[in-house]
């Protein structure tokens, strides 16, 4: 673990990238910020620009139209960064796998762009907020 990764783990700032999701994963992510779960107590906040972010929260299946934008956003994020793939859609394509507008999975796209990318999978449709928090904590403890 390098110095940069050690610093990354302190209080992660996240940027939300919705790549053709069904909205539900996104709503559950916003749910995390509200009083019931309140992840801000761990220092996790949503920021307005990928340049400020330590982690990308990616949801959805990533259709043809959004793919170049996802790559652009990934490039704009300061490295090292963690890509959290929320939901069955972003992990393996869910029911949309094989659809004409869903040519590739998100992890393929990101690994093609940067083979050293750190990718964390949090499956579920949608993952429960508790599962999301558990996934983030687990990922940070092994980084």
């Amino acid at each position: 673990m390098g110095l940069k990764t050690a610093a990354l783990k302190k209080s992660i700032w996240v940027f939300h990238v919705a790549c053709s999701p069904c909205n539900n994963c996104d709503i559950e992510i916003l749910d995390l910020l509200t009083p019931r779960f309140d992840v801000e107590r761990f220092g996790i906040i949503l920021v307005g620009s990928p340049r400020h972010a330590d982690a990308l929260l990616i949801t959805g299946v990533c259709n043809r139209h959004v793919t170049p934008r996802l790559i652009e956003t990934y490039r704009a994020t300061a490295k090292p960064c963690v890509c959290f793939l929320f939901g069955a859609c972003s992990c393996q394509g869910n029911v949309f796998k094989g659809g004409y507008n869903v040519p590739r999975l998100i992890d393929e796209i990101i690994l093609e762009e940067d083979p050293n990318a750190i990718i964390v999978y949090i499956p579920g449709c949608p993952p429960k907020p508790e599962a999301m928090i558990a996934g983030v904590v687990k990922a940070l403890s092994v980084l």
Partner: peptide
């Protein structure tokens, strides 16, 4: 167009009882 996933086409490849799970999403 950033959200288009092709539901109507995908639905024609599923059985009648599977489609509710697709359209739910």
């Amino acid at each position: 167009g950033y959200n288009h996933r092709g539901h109507e086409k995908l639905a024609t490849g599923l059985t009648w009882d599977q489609v509710p799970f697709l359209v739910e999403r």
